[in-house]
Amino acid sequence: MSKHVVVIGGGVAGLEVAGQLSKVGIEVSLIEKENKSGGHLNNWYRLFPDRRNSTEVKEYLDGMTHNGGIKLLTNTTIEKLNRSGSHFSITTNEGKELIADAVIVATGFDLFKSARKEEYGYGIYDNVFTSADLEEMFKKGELALTNGIVPETIGIIHCVGSRDEKVGNFYCSKLCCVTAVKQAIEIREYLPDSKVFCFYMDMRMGGAFYEELYREAQEKWGVNFIRGKVSEASETIENKLLIKVEDTLAGRPLKMKLDMLVLMAGMEMSEGGKKIAGIGGLRTGENRFFAATDNHFGSNKSNIEGVFYAGTCTAPMNITETISHARAAVVEVIDYLKNSK
């Protein structure tokens, strides 16, 4: 009899897991809270570091899931998750009960809600946007201020909601730096006459080809990098954004008027993930992400046997890492199913 695995979350990790499992003949129910799969990938325009179109990755993932054996349940959330013997019984919001041999949690991340950093004025001032807002603008192909005017000076603030104990996030989201660099380049590409300033605490370009992208931003696109945390923004009479920052390398406070401010929102444990943790009794860490049993060799294993993690529900990851982590989860599941019963 073929085994049945429930995958919670239809983002990058969930799709990859589902695809790989179906390849080896395991039946999969893929649960997605939105009306379509793809997760955050649907919102991004181009991906770092090579700026390929996100649809290419989406196509790959969709291709993975088209080979049958995967039942996609959209607009579905989970209300109950119980273990009964060697099986799991899962109740959906529509009251449907699924019986599974194993569960993979791939609930991903939520973007930090930037309005929580009130001093930056997101939701208060007209022209403060988030990195996600900017991606949407890129997708639409219109990069403009709220009143439709094209911005000339754009500031990008790193570490919004990351490395900030004031919002309860001690950790580094690690993708915002490279996202900032990528978006800075894209802005310059769109608006060759614009000036872009990145305000960073540290440039964390630790991924493959990130540093090269950083060089390109400086060399080819003339993006300006200023080391200092922006403390606050205010709106001026002419509807510009006045920011306060210390240029720490020059050792002097710096005031600058900008047309547009882009906040690099960090990654947080998703609300969906928190809910699953609550109903399933899954352990979370101090950073609120799911806590795996071992950081080195058990990063897919949860505290409940038969429940596994895949992707950014355990820590901030880029797409490459997410896919690798998802494949690792598949290995764990197959191993588990082989040994159980």
Partner: peptide
Amino acid sequence: HLTPSIKN
């Protein structure tokens, strides 16, 4: 000044 919403 750190709560611009109050100021506005």
